[in-house]
Design a protein around this nucleic acid. Sequence first.
DNA 1: TTGTAGGCGTTATCAG
DNA 2: CTGATAACGCCTACAA
Lengths: 378, 378
Amino acid sequence: MSKRPTVYDVARLAGVSTATVSFTYSKPERVRPDTRAQVLAAADQIGYVPRASARDLARGRTGALGLHAFDFLLETPGGGRTPSLGPDLVTPDASGVARIAWEDGYDDRMSDPRAFPLYVDEVQRGFELECWRAGRALLLSSGTDPRIDLTESAGRVDGLAVFPGDVSLAALEQVARRIPIVLLSRHDEGLPCNRVLVDNASGMRQVLEHLLVEHRTRSIGYVGSLAVADFAERFEALRSGAERAGIAAPVVLDDSDASDGRPLSMLIDLASTGRLPEALVCGSDQVALQALDTLAELGVDVPGDVLVTGFDGVLAGRLSNPTLTTVRQPMEAMGRLAARLLVDHSADAPFATYRLEPRLLPRGSCGCGAPARALRRD
Amino acid sequence: MSKRPTVYDVARLAGVSTATVSFTYSKPERVRPDTRAQVLAAADQIGYVPRASARDLARGRTGALGLHAFDFLLETPGGGRTPSLGPDLVTPDASGVARIAWEDGYDDRMSDPRAFPLYVDEVQRGFELECWRAGRALLLSSGTDPRIDLTESAGRVDGLAVFPGDVSLAALEQVARRIPIVLLSRHDEGLPCNRVLVDNASGMRQVLEHLLVEHRTRSIGYVGSLAVADFAERFEALRSGAERAGIAAPVVLDDSDASDGRPLSMLIDLASTGRLPEALVCGSDQVALQALDTLAELGVDVPGDVLVTGFDGVLAGRLSNPTLTTVRQPMEAMGRLAARLLVDHSADAPFATYRLEPRLLPRGSCGCGAPARALRRD
DNA sequence: TTGTAGGCGTTATCAG
DNA sequence: CTGATAACGCCTACAA
């Protein structure tokens, strides 16, 4: 009795059978009101809380949806997401109260738009909202061990959305055989599942056209890694677009090796030798913001000396100086769509790729700063 | 065989017993390497994914931590969190590709700093980070039915953090008897659990002192509801502070009834009859930003005609015009602390209340706009 | 190191 | 509407 109470305990106390107890929780309408009241009272009295694991086991499904990311450290080299510790746990005083103050700057560091919200956070939010709508619980997971962790979370949910990251195709294939999967911004071929991704080529075309038409740009540099699939697509669109427009192929400033300290060394080289192109098209907002910092330190004026554009549309781009011209991905919509595909999943529906349209947001870093009141409407 | 494979299937195929299969996953070191390889190969072949519900049931715990919120609609009346639908699911074409474009303004609405990230989001982020650190999965849940939903999620996790909202004390008490609970910004008395909250009084004292000393304010209005515990604490601190300072008691502009359409009718009244106090101290950033909007529409200049302050420190306060003077809660730290208390929980440790120190951030809405470059450093 | 068998707490089935 | 009982899939002594 002093152990965790079960349906049996409740049933005995309420003078009913376990089935009645079960129904009381899962199908209230199928049990007489006063019986129900008795059961609830009994449950209350002995502190009964139904165990989901038992229910899920019996039912054969969990009712939860999952969103799996991989170690953030891998995703944002040098980024601010490293899970650093807060202050040590203070011992409460006699009255059970602990006051915690912070060393100067702690909460500033902890509330940095450059670290949050990022792309994944906005997608995640969309996923959350759609889960609430569907009345589904949401299991968030993240892992460094690509094998174990993915399988782990897969075993807990009825459907799983997966962010880009270092996971073995084999593991994904395995999981995809048991539950529906949605790939977010991943281009892995041959997996039996739905995909939600953004039309990178369209986004880049919008950037290029804007630069060519509005700013008469004739020379372009691309800043960013080429290793990630999304980035590679973006660069390729830029390259082929430049070719089509008859301007020089974009110089590539790859920063993928610069994970810490002073990144963007190639940018520094070009800037200090006066060989900067007229515009720097960056593979992501994060890189673009770094570039803005670097250029500012070098005394290069943006957009006066060089135009800069990003990709993603994170909030930090509205707080930089100058504000960042960028391509906004419909991040929340991507998350919503992913969740919806999982919720509505039917075994026989064919898999599809959903390619969402991004949109150019001209702002200060290309000299198209919006008027003042646009602060609120963007 | 066409059904979901289980340990038995794997065991049979690998020519071992189910115990060996189990060990292969949970205690790899206790099984001979080649046996292990065989088991994994067999699992791979038939697409075996261990079911967490069965494991959790057998083990008696889930390994996951939970964060429970209540219906957002209740929390942010008239706010932008209403889970509205995205566009309808487009049918993919023959090649399995669906292109989705958006009506104008859709993604603007969907990416509004006034709706995200809010207080809860930043706390949640801290909680997430700490979960990753501890290698725990995180179950996010939200519910309208305060009774069922809370119990539901409680049944799935080893520990639960609870946001403020409409939940019956009885339900919380029930759950607290089975698993450790941490209350976030909740002041419910008498529950056997830890609490993490912010020192509202300290925050308000900082605001008041700033207004009195730096701006020589002599008359103050309080804007916001008094129904929520946090808000009530803030108002009380303001009231008693004003009394101590020998200035008039703050006028209360309660907006709790104005859930839609034109809120802040009292503010409009005062403004249009020229009876505005010198400073409007708001109970939250959200209310403060609404006040800023309303005042702008009325042609009242901030901070010229009236000073405005908020409370929370959400990102939107840096994007408003003028930027919002506010008190920042260490939101991420609160989330981290909550998770940590759950992870480190030991049955015999006494419960405590952790009261974190917030900090004043003087900005434009009280005429203390930071210098330009502070955009990045705040 | 590996196999056997009982138990974890609920749900579902099928009578009554 | 309620009661008995067999799954559900895995873990873990205990034995071999």
